[in-house]
Design a protein around this nucleic acid. Structure first.
Lengths: 233, 233
DNA sequence: ACAAAAGTGTTACGGTTACACCCATGC
DNA sequence: GCATGGGTGTAACCGTAACACTTTTGT
């Protein structure tokens, strides 16, 4: 398969996406594994000459998850020199069967703009790209070692996600349209990493006036059926 | 004077700095004017091949303000295609007497990482660089029209500054070492754009336990002399 | 003494917490 | 009816707001 060509992309600029999903009461991240290398990385990509940065990231997500119209937030740009390790990229490309020159553009230094995405992981069919062979969900607390500074990028993403939790309807993008208060609480707990008090949480959420109550959800359990809620537009 | 050479800098990557200062009870920003063009812009620059992004911005500030060890915060990276207007850069360079080829690297598309800086404007001696002739302080609310998306960058910087006001000791970097409570309040008011209640503000600040009280400041006015405060380390 | 601005004591208010209690559901 | 978990009423608590009052300074 052909490598991305320098003619199509801006040199020295990359993006990386920390794609958050929520399932089984855990916060998860999509991680890529490169062919025959045992190397793990965040899904990323490059920006085309005539493409908005934000749209490049959207395109990358579409290619990887099949999802369009995803909630995306840019949070930091990583530009330290020490993140420049051309031998890592060389290994990845060679393990995939590409012969590359020493002055190949993908071996140059990149500054990477990092975004986090929030998706409802039920809807996703992950698709590895040309140079990766697997793409899978990992618990945020149990990530493998990632290449370059990608573990730092994840930590930073989580920090910004926590910051934004109080000012943006984060749960909206990680949950199905209708959800119970308990599910919303579990999302918040997974993001913050601390337990929250059930009754206070419920009242705080309802007090925001951004939730709408629907029918109850009868789930066959021997207890009161919880209401379903959705975010109002 | 020689233009920056492509050999020294990463292509397609720039930075812009929104340099905030405080004087005369107003929040101000350092704005550059290019030679013979009437064009105003944020001070910015390029990243050298072997230079951390953060350090490149520090270097830029040192060159422009003579100040070292400045408080800097990266807040957003601007990468829309519409910000690519090669004719603007061409005008600037030509007005400065440079003949440039159509494929000159400074005429290519740039993605710009934006930082804001907080400085105590008393200490600054501004120094125009090679291609600008003036560098001056402008009130945040009375900015001239800036090139490209620089007015948007300023608005965004202000938004992030407001956000950070409640979680970081912003005043520390905009004021001299010792200052009165009123001065600190004026900084907050200038950033937020709203008046604050004197007594509540004072108690809120003191309650943070990050202020130390020193001797009074006798200023010859016919009223009680205010205490001076400083931020504790 | 007076005006002006700084500092403080007291009470009120609003949002969150803590805890109790009630309600609905399937066994 | 009982165990289990969801929903709500009430009082306590805490930080800030509001307002009045005192203190300090130079004229």
């Amino acid at each position: 398969m052909a490598l991305p060509s320098e003619k199509n992309y801006l040199s020295h600029i990359a993006f990386d996406s920390v794609i958050f999903g929520f399932s089984g009461q855990k916060l998860k991240i999509l991680i890529m594994e490169y062919h025959n290398t045992g190397l793990y990385a965040l899904p990323g990509g490059f920006v085309m000459h005539n493409e908005d940065l934000d749209l490049a990231v959207q395109r990358g997500l579409l290619e990887r998850t099949g999802l369009d119209n995803i909630y995306l937030e840019q949070f930091h740009t990583f530009g330290n020199v020490e993140r420049y390790k051309p031998e890592v990229m060389r290994n990845i490309l060679q393990a995939d069967g590409h012969a590359i020159d020493n002055d190949h553009w993908m071996l140059e230094r990149f500054i990477s703009v990092a975004y986090y995405a929030l998706i409802n992981s039920d809807k996703v069919e992950t698709r590895p790209d040309q140079i990766s062979d697997s793409l899978g969900w990992y618990n945020v607390e149990e990530l493998p070692e990632l290449i370059l500074d990608h573990n730092t990028i994840v930590k930073t993403a989580l920090k910004y996600l926590q910051l934004n939790l109080s000012i943006k309807p984060i749960g909206k993008n990680l949950l199905p349209n209708k959800f119970t208060m308990k599910e919303l609480q579990q999302v918040h707990e997974a993001i913050l990493g601390t337990p929250l008090r059930r009754t206070s949480f419920q009242r705080r959420m309802l007090g925001l006036d951004i939730l709408e109550r629907h029918e109850k959800r009868f789930n066959g359990k021997a207890h009161k059926a919880p209401y379903l809620y959705s975010f109002v537009e």
